[in-house]
Design a protein around this nucleic acid. Sequence first.
DNA 1: GCCGTTTTCGGCCCGACTGTTTTCAGTCG
Length: 593
Amino acid sequence: MNKGEIAAVLNDIATLLELKGENPFKVRAYANGARILEALPEEEIARRVSEETLQEVKGIGEALAQKIAELHTTGKLEFFEKLRASLPPGLREMLEIPGLGPKKIKAVHEQLAVDSIMALEAACREGRVAALAGFGEKTQEKILEGIANRKAYGQRHLWAEAFATAEPILAGLRALAQVQQAEHAGSLRRRMETVGDLDFLVATEDAQPVVDWFVRWPEVKEITAQGATKASVRLQSGIQADLRLVPPEQFVFALHHFTGSKEHNVQMRQRALARGLSMSEWGLVPAEGVGTAKEKAEQMGRRTDITSEAELFAALGLQEIPPELREGLGEIDVAEQRALPCLVEAKEIRGVFHNHTTESDGHNTLEEMVAGAQALGLDYLGIADHSKSSVQARGLDETRLLAQVAAIRQLNASQRFATHVFAGTECDILPDGRLDFADEILAQLDYVVVAVHSAFRQGREEMTARLIRAIENPYTTMLAHPTGRLLLERPGYEIDFDRVIDAAIAHGVIIEINASPWRLDLDWRHWRRAAERGLLCSINPDAHTVAQLAYFHAGVAVARKGWLTREQMLTSKPLAEVRKHFAQRKQRAQPSS
DNA sequence: GCCGTTTTCGGCCCGACTGTTTTCAGTCG
């Protein structure tokens, strides 16, 4: 089994143990194990399994090491099979209903023989759930509501859509006279590829007018909660938005708390405790003495000298950790060493590659796209329309491609635009790994993007070999959307990431962050380690319209989550360096000429 | 199940909210 599959099993075990009412810390140990495994390179897992050194990884002990090794070598785990067989499969999805946790699920299962959401809905309608000890009318109603909402609103939302929805709300909050500070928090602030809801945090001495403004926002469809310190609404798009209001002196602690992630917060609090401090959304206070952290924080009141997140991290001996890195994946250790990377910023992006025009399936002409890139202040723009095999996208054959190259050369020569245009192609990788164009055609382009658009159903081995063969072509400049995933729609095809990344590094091929909000592929989870090993990144919006050129912002978010710096990106290099990079690649591809 | 500069057992992050009970358990983030 590969690490993704093993991690999935560990997560399943955590869920099943939770349903069994097991020790919550044991449950967490399995879930942690899954996350830790995901962050390890495949080859390191293989090595540690064979050397029996998995246990040296922090968070993996004897039991997990043994189970991971068994899964890795045999693909099976008896412990898991037995556990899974001991519970009806319908119970786990009941965990997705808000207000229902393992204890309550256990109760309805044991006392009412409920083993699925359907059976639970029926039991609620017959009033049998309300009759149980510890349940009541309200709980029963809430469960029914939860089941109904799950169908309507159960899904997550693309980060870019959520961000676009949140921006005007945040701006509106900041413009209110009563608001001293406002930020978004949660996974939106951490730039996760999908978010569950929008979190807003406001510092104010006068909460009521702010709440009133928030619940009257034009896009609000329904108010689900409204109090003195918190309000929740459902927007037209189905996404939920939460507003929390705190006194100004508490803002920084609450901001850190509600930004998360949960795992990051747990580790931060452990660190605080090791230093005799107790940390919560209320403040950072001495752990000793009586009273809760909240009471102590209130006693300290405005005397706190921490007024920014940087100061909060500093109080725990840490470099400031940008929100994007707060995933509990080792950032605290690195911040302690003061060795966090200087993350790339949107303003450092000088150009973008992999964009389409009306020649294939784009909606704007070459000139319109260049004008759009110029308006964004980009120094260069890479055009890469589809190749002939992508018939569905009106892919260009050799004649049309060379005509487009000539048009681009002419446009550059005319100096109509300040933005330089690079002529390329998004060349199909055929099912056997060959490219859609012959070398002598590719040699006439500035750069070549290679991508899979057919035969998605190939197995992991075949797909990996296919990508590697394409990477080995001397004319290949960069690999596009390596897994072909569409977020919230379909998973990517399976590939051996380590082998593909190794091949790219060995052949000097760039891998893109496809910045289309539906793709964000290659995923941020791979980038930190890949870039450390020498992989160069290109942020490519895959724009099919002028407006989509701005997608590169979503790509920057992924790059930042992947710990990438400006130096690790082609697209933040000056035009002259990019030209040099392409020229050197071409020279290597045709050494004789 | 994991972990250790109070180490091999006994802890494990912290608080709010809700609904059910009358002092708290369960759930959530």
